[in-house]
Design a binder for these strands. Structure first.
Lengths: 228, 228
DNA sequence: ATTTAAATTCATCGCTTGTTGAATTGTCAA
DNA sequence: TTGACAATTCAACAAGCGATGAATTTAAAT
């Protein structure tokens, strides 16, 4: 009864190996977009399945229960982002040797990879940045996921800042880092708020404008607090 | 059949006018705490009713449907906060006349009322600050609620900053304001992240430490970008 | 050719969701 | 004292929730 002209509705599809597990990625991408917009509890598996063009049961088949899916979505680009930030920092360190890297360059190594990502063809990065803002500001997810996937990177950047600002107390460095993290989160959450706030003068999606001002803004803040 | 010794379970309670609508406030306070922690969709009316020690139906009776309740919760302290920020700014302006208020004082007028609120006896302010972070970073709620309840204040503070930084382009001012808003949000979201990140050195609930560094940090950022 | 495993759909489970109408009890003005 | 109204509980509603086991089809391994 198999091998009919029209493909069966049920059962394994006549898989070209090209779209092998391409459905898995469709699920992740749709989940990324929806979680970023509505948060964990604001997304139902049925909405997600519909957005991904996939049956509900397939989500569980690929990614297990909802929480695990959320973690997978968050982790995916965290790893990529960490690597890019790290290589940017290493490059700056190499360029500066034997001197310590100046503060601006450290901030730049931290922020530019986000700008590049957001301006890339892959629309998913925009969603991921909004998701990052959601997680970072959530008392439920923040301490769990941010620590799990980003703390290692924090240590590296704090160490670099410590060398750039030798007079700074550690507490100063961590607090300033925290301000930077907050400014970054909101800016790349892309909520459209600045558009309304500025009566149309500034645009949320003008990443160039956002970053070009943000880097000197943050660097000056660090210096003020940590060079006193 | 009324007037039995034990008060009836159903029907209007033997109201002392003291707790008149005190149940309404209990609902708002519980809602504030829960929405701040779990977001709009993460809170069910039954959980809320339970936390407030109240029947589910009473929520709708007092505040209408869920969305309207959310708006009411958000609006309540927005008004208070706006007033306090405004009087702080007016005081700074009076103290500085005929000169424009220096940047630090403007930032201070914007941020200190939050510190005072968070350090007050009213625990609700802590929850409200976390709620503010949630709303501010949400693409769904941010542009609606933030604009509705805070845009008027933005205009006033931007005008003050414009006078303090006469060389600045308006776009610079709005972007810097946005960075400030983000840094503030995350800091007062009180997620406990900085505690983990700093290996226990800094504490999320050390508001004094947070603000004393934040004000010079932000002010220096403004100057750097807007005095070039 | 047969068996095993992978990928998919479908139907359904037991619970939970926001909301509402009816019933009940108390207050206060006429 | 009667009647309007305010405040509360209770029970139920249709819809939606996350999860899963069974059935089905195809691909790969033997």
């Amino acid at each position: 009864m198999s091998r009919s002209k029209t493909p069966a509705k049920v059962g394994r599809p006549r898989g070209s190996e090209k779209d092998k597990s391409e459905r898995g990625e469709r699920i992740l991408n749709a989940a990324e977009a929806l979680f970023a917009l509505h948060g964990y509890d604001g997304v139902t598996l049925r909405t997600l399945a519909n957005a991904a063009g996939v049956d509900v049961a397939l989500i569980n088949y690929y990614f297990g229960p909802k929480q695990q899916l959320f973690d997978t979505v968050f982790k995916r680009r965290a790893q990529i982002l960490n690597e890019e930030r790290l290589t940017a920092l290493r490059a700056a360190q190499e360029a500066a040797t034997p001197n310590p890297v100046p503060v601006e360059k450290i901030i730049e190594a931290f922020l530019r990879p986000l700008e590049v990502a957001q301006e890339s063809d892959d629309e998913g990065w925009k969603n991921y940045c909004a998701l990052l803002a959601y997680v970072n500001n959530s008392a439920v997810w923040g301490p769990v996921l941010m620590s799990k996937h980003y703390n290692e990177l924090v240590d590296v950047f704090i160490e670099a800042l410590r060398q750039a600002l030798p007079k700074a107390a550690d507490a100063d460095l961590y607090w300033c880092y925290h301000y930077m993290s907050g400014a970054m989160s909101l800016t790349f959450a892309n909520t459209g708020r600045i558009d309304k706030m500025s009566h149309g003068l500034c645009r949320s999606d003008d990443f160039q404008a956002a970053y070009d001002r943000m880097i000197p803004f943050i660097a000056a803040g660090f210096r003020q607090v940590c060079e006193a």
